[in-house]
Design a protein around this nucleic acid. Structure first.
Lengths: 169, 169
DNA sequence: CTTGGAATGTCAACAAGGCTGACGTATGCT
DNA sequence: AGCATACGTCAGCCTTGTTGACATTCCAAG
């Protein structure tokens, strides 16, 4: 199973960054950092009747306005029932608008309303503030490495979704 | 609120890595990567009666054998009731042993049994495999940056916990 | 020695947010 | 006409988080 020893043995050069110890550090760093990553928006959401699931929906609708439900489903990686519960509250609270598709009337295209945009701003300002601070502390080279490793850690489908969003598919 | 524009304006040199666009990429990278990060252990846990919470408990007990419940509570950032539910099943299933403290008999010290160690190995092998692959693809400099940014993203308390674990407190 | 507080465990109730399964409706395609 | 697709919804279940209340055990201070 574990080839950490092997990695150490092979490291005539410098594969020391692949030791089990280094990998464990990476795992724990992901765990603790993700907590920080979600902490600020969670605090804001906690004061309202919303949760992390609402944040995710609002984020990606803002990111790709007019996206369809199926599309969002694929990006979020949840079931339609799960997403629907969230969307229903967002729509009835007037944060999200659902428009019937023009070419294909089966599809619903999702948009943020003014209120929805405000919430998105509030949440992403909070989350960006932490990210900005972390980026600034670490510097541009570190940020490049950070993104490189994260991208390599994604499942293939998610990497595709990520790259599409990034490069404007 | 958002000072992304400001960052761009100030970037006589190279603060371009602090633009809102770059920060958004970082945010989405964290989101997608974390999904990959937990996917493999989740699959294994799904086949048993366990979930991600059990994984976390087992991981940190293995990491610091003999740790107390309070200690684990602080690291995991959940309530004792929540943790207790998980620990109870792990103990009654014979994966974790809880020993009354010698110096302070109020404390319970937690250890993995042989079976517990096996599960931990299985889970962390799976998780390390993905981390190793990502590290290898990205290379040592990227890994250094990855850890640097993640560490800067943590809450102060969690950073302390992380560093203590890393440096063997 | 008594008492207060700390550490732990447990019960009950609840909520968010996942899941599956089943079903209905509208629409599009062949 | 009939099948497939997109979406919504109802019902029920699970995990994992939360509060609040309360009991036990034990250390330490008075």
């Amino acid at each position: 199973m574990s080839d950490g020893r092997a990695a150490q043995v092979y490291s005539g050069e410098s594969l020391l960054f692949l030791t089990d110890e280094q990998l464990r550090q990476g795992i724990e760093a992901m765990f603790f950092a993700y907590r920080g990553f979600t902490a600020d928006p969670d605090r804001i959401l906690g004061e309202m009747a919303y949760g992390r699931a609402h944040h995710r929906a609002v984020h990606f609708i803002n990111r790709a306005p007019g996206t369809t439900v199926n599309n969002l489903l694929a990006i979020l990686g949840v079931t339609k029932q799960s997403l629907n519960r969230v969307l229903r509250t967002l729509i009835s609270d007037g944060l999200v608008e659902s428009r019937v598709g023009t070419s294909d009337k089966r599809e619903r295209h999702l948009f943020l309303t003014e209120t929805g945009l405000q919430l998105e701003q509030q949440l992403s300002d909070a989350q960006r503030a932490r990210m900005r601070s972390a980026f600034r502390d670490a510097g541009p080279e570190a940020v490049a490495g950070f993104k490189q490793v994260l991208e390599a850690m994604m499942d293939t489908d998610m990497r595709r979704a990520y790259v599409n969003l990034r490069d404007g598919a």
